[in-house]
């Protein structure tokens, strides 16, 4: 209880804000340097957005669908095929393509036009693995701190 009374954020969450801002800058760079890329999102497995970069002509409601939650379920299921853990799912639609990476506990989603080069998107997603894993560790620590704080309430 004491922790929540004197601080705006729980202890772990405060430490999470800095890496999230740095990741946001990485995503913005990627968006600007990749052709036909419309949006880059980093979410948790429930679809809650931690960092995002979107193109200027992309309305917010485009990111509303449960992209990450769908991926999360599909990724869990494909883990039962006997091919080991799922790393990535690429879905191609009439006008768009979505590439999603499983960087547990986080998910990276790249939304691009179908004209975009799929190989470039996959390579870009792999390049972001390290920074996302750093944020992922901070998220895990923040969750642990929160659980500990709740034990004292």
């Amino acid at each position: 209880m004491e922790i929540y009374r004197y601080s705006m954020y729980p202890l772990g969450l405060k430490k999470l804000i800095v890496p999230c801002r740095q990741l946001q800058a990485f995503l913005q760079d990627l968006l600007e340097s990749t052709d036909h890329l419309k949006a880059v999102l980093v979410t948790d497995k429930d679809g809650v957005i931690l960092a995002k970069a979107t193109g200027p002509d992309l309305p917010d409601h485009v990111l509303e669908p449960a992209f990450s939650a769908t991926f999360s379920v599909a990724s869990d299921q494909s883990g039962k095929l006997g091919f080991g853990r799922n790393k990535m799912i690429m879905s191609t639609f009439d006008e768009d393509q979505v590439v999603q990476f499983n960087y547990s506990p986080l998910i990276l989603t790249l939304l691009a036009s179908s004209k975009a080069n799929s190989g470039v998107l996959i390579a870009a997603g792999k390049d972001l693995e390290e920074p996302i894993k750093i944020v992922g560790e901070s998220v895990s620590k923040a969750i642990q701190h929160e659980h500990k704080a709740k034990e004292y309430v």
Binding site: F83, G84, R85, K87, M88, S91, T92, E95
Partner: peptide
Amino acid sequence: EGLRNLILDCEQG
């Protein structure tokens, strides 16, 4: 839009 193709990449397949 309609879904055209889906590719799943796992550790061993």
